[in-house]
């Protein structure tokens, strides 16, 4: 309870400080030229908001697939002896779902070393 009150009080204090700074005019001071991206003096004609390819996504997929596997297998190994076949089947289902991601990655060429 005391912890919660502490969090609440510090959040209110942070909010109040932010609003007070804004009230003093410390926010919203930048002019239009200051808001434009810095290009060494040039003026961008196109919005900087754009879609580009996150090329590490396939590595991320692989990482998450194997990391999730390990994350759940350690606690599972602890309860496996008590639960028996039920735990075995559940882990089988979980691994089957994860392996779909790995198979997809395989098709996308994750395992090809370049």
């Amino acid at each position: 309870m005391v912890d919660l009150a502490g969090i609440l009080i510090s959040s209110i204090a942070a909010l109040a400080t932010g609003l007070a700074l804004q009230g003093f005019g410390l926010g919203g001071l930048s002019s239009e030229p200051q808001k434009t991206p810095y290009l060494g003096g040039s003026d961008p004609k196109v919005h900087a908001w754009q879609r580009y390819h996150v090329r590490y996504y396939s590595m991320t997929l692989l990482f998450i697939a194997f990391e999730m596997e390990m994350m759940f297998m350690y606690p599972w190994a602890v309860v496996f002896l008590e639960e028996g076949v039920k735990a075995m089947v559940e882990m089988g289902m979980f691994l089957a779902i994860l392996s779909i991601g790995i198979l997809y990655g395989w098709r996308e060429g994750i395992f090809r070393w370049q």
């Binding site: 060494g40 919005h47 900087a48 754009q50």
Partner: peptide, 24 residues
């Protein structure tokens, strides 16, 4: 400012946004 529009990619042919700007 208008948004960047899609264009052919040189690396793997994914049509994603091409951003043209002057630098300097």
């Amino acid at each position: 400012r208008p948004m960047a529009m899609t264009d052919e990619d040189q690396r793997d042919g994914l049509a994603l946004d091409a951003y043209t700007a002057c630098f300097g």
